[in-house]
């Protein structure tokens, strides 16, 4: 079995975002990057499947982006993926989800993967499109938002998360794409020996131009911080003073402290 896992490297979401010079994306300087949270579940599920099948499947991890994405790929390799494909694209943010998916699908079509794992969404763009679109281009079966995954004899049983805590169970035959939701599994921490082993694993590099043949279908006109609505009160300073201020407000504006 050949498995592909698509991972994106994204900024830590606790960062302060500033705009880049053309105002269509965030400025990357001073940001700390990590693997997209949803993609960690994808990597973990692929590695668990490999273990279940006695180590037979080969796992390729793919990422489109500038050179920094290699760091996230190394983490995936240390978690247990076998090889990496870095599709080099410093201007990745100018590609729309259709172009990213087309490039991934073009790579995948040449490799005969049986199963593709992606995150359900990226934390920075969050279009929740790339995985499904890859499936559509390749003609693979696809199920999204997995919180449960099991595999037996060419058939995946996927537990999809629906609204309000209900789940929907579906079966799909390989070849397939599944998109992974938070809580699907507990991603492992790479151990030191595995980090060392990962250093010897191959990461092939390919420029995006070799894979991209599609024009964009949507474009970001600009990025901006949301307008602050509400006019809520911000309390800063020393904890003691903060508590007195907060109690004052709660006594005035709510009924819950009447007893206190």
């Amino acid at each position: 079995m050949k498995i592909l896992v698509c991972i994106k490297q994204v900024p830590d979401m606790e960062s302060r975002f500033k705009l880049n010079s053309d105002g269509t994306w965030y400025d990357e300087t001073d940001l700390a990057f990590r693997m997209n949270e949803y993609d960690e579940y994808a990597v973990e599920q692929a590695v668990q499947l490999k273990e279940q099948l006695g180590g037979e499947p080969e796992i390729t991890v793919l990422s489109i982006g500038p050179d920094r994405v290699v760091e996230a790929m190394k983490k995936a390799l240390a978690m247990g993926a076998d090889r990496g494909v870095h599709i080099q694209d410093p201007k990745y943010y100018q590609k729309d989800p259709w172009q990213i998916a087309s490039a991934i699908a073009r790579h995948a079509a040449s490799q005969n993967y049986d199963l593709v794992f992606t995150g359900m969404q990226s934390q920075d763009r969050g279009s929740a499109q790339v995985g499904v679109t890859v499936a559509e281009i390749l003609g693979f079966a696809c199920a999204t938002t997995l919180v449960g995954f099991s595999y037996d004899n060419g058939v995946i049983t996927a537990k999809r998360e629906l609204e309000g805590g209900t789940k929907g169970v579906a079966k799909l035959k390989l070849p397939a794409v599944v998109t992974c939701q938070l809580g699907l599994n507990t991603p492992r921490y790479p151990t030191l020996p595995n980090i060392m082993k990962a250093k010897k694993k191959e990461i092939a590099v390919q420029p995006i131009a070799e894979l991209l043949q599609e024009e964009e279908l949507t474009a970001t006109a600009r990025m901006y911080p949301p307008a602050r609505k509400g006019g809520g009160i911000v309390i800063e300073g020393d904890v003691k003073d903060q508590i007195e201020k907060l109690f004052g407000i709660l006594k005035e504006k709510t009924t819950v402290l009447r007893a206190a």
Binding site: D96, S127, A128, Q129, V132, T133, E136, C142
Partner: peptide, 23 residues
């Protein structure tokens, strides 16, 4: 943009080769 919509919309968009704007 729900478990039904984000699952189905990209399939329709890709079939039509048309752009999708999410959420």
């Amino acid at each position: 943009h729900s478990s039904y919509g984000w699952d189905l919309a990209p399939r329709v968009a890709a079939s039509l080769r048309t752009g999708q704007v999410s959420e």
